Simulated scan of single mutants.
Amino acid sequence: MNTPLDWASLVGLCGTACIIGAYAYLTLAKATNPFLLHGTNLLGAVLLTVSLLYHTNWASLVLEFFWAGIAVIGLVRAWRGRVPEGEQG
């Protein structure tokens, strides 16, 4: 492997860290905050997409498109299911 560690690779590594961190959080936390979980996954997918647009890998780019889509669905569901302030019982 002779690929330099350029800005796009560093952005991709940050995205990878986000996705791994979100998975660890989901696995290890007793209770999870869906906004934190899906938001971190979405950030990771976006960062990896930026990296993949520079260093194109079509299979990984498709994966990140779906990963981001699932994260957006999770955020929308969490937003719709939240309890407004003052109505918590």
Results as ranks from 00 to 15, higher is better:
A22I: 03
A24H: 09
L63K: 05
T49Y: 01
V62P: 04
A45V: 03
L63M: 14
D6M: 05
G21N: 10
V11P: 00
L52G: 05
L43W: 02
V11N: 06
P34N: 07
S51V: 02
G12D: 03
L52N: 04
S60L: 10
A17S: 09
E64I: 08
G21P: 01
N41V: 08
L42T: 03
A8K: 09
T40C: 11
E64C: 09
F65G: 13
A8H: 09
F65Y: 13
L53Q: 14
A8V: 05
H38M: 12
V11G: 04
A8R: 04
L36G: 06
T27I: 08
H38F: 04
A45M: 07
G44F: 00
I19A: 01
T49N: 01
S51N: 09
A24C: 06
T49M: 09
F35V: 01
G12C: 03
Y54D: 04
T27Q: 13
V62L: 13
A29G: 12
G39H: 00
G21W: 00
F65C: 14
N41L: 06
H55K: 12
N57Q: 15
V46G: 08
L61F: 09
H55N: 12
T16I: 10
T40A: 11
G39V: 11
E64V: 06
S51I: 01
V11A: 12
I20N: 10
A31T: 08
A24R: 06
H55S: 09
H38V: 03
Y54I: 14
H38N: 10
I20D: 06
A24G: 08
F35C: 01
I19C: 02
T49W: 01
A8L: 12
K30T: 15
A24E: 08
V62D: 06
S9L: 07
W58Y: 15
P34D: 08
L28D: 11
V50W: 04
L36S: 11
F66H: 13
Y54M: 15
K30H: 11
S60F: 05
A59K: 11
Y54K: 11
S9G: 06
A45E: 01
S9I: 04
Y25R: 05
L42Q: 03
A45D: 00
L10I: 06
L37D: 00
V46R: 04
A22Y: 00
L42P: 02
Y23A: 15
T56G: 12
L53Y: 10
L13P: 04
C14Y: 08
G15W: 00
Y23F: 14
H55A: 12
G12R: 00
S51D: 11
A59V: 15
S9K: 10
A31V: 15
H55L: 06
A31R: 12
F65Q: 13
G39E: 07
S60Q: 11
D6C: 14
Y25A: 05
L47T: 06
A22C: 10
A24K: 05
A22T: 10
T27V: 13
A59C: 15
V50S: 08
H38R: 05
T56S: 09
T16G: 02
D6A: 12
T16H: 02
N41A: 11
L13S: 08
S51G: 02
F65S: 15
T49Q: 07
L61A: 08
A17K: 07
L63Y: 10
L42H: 00
V50P: 02
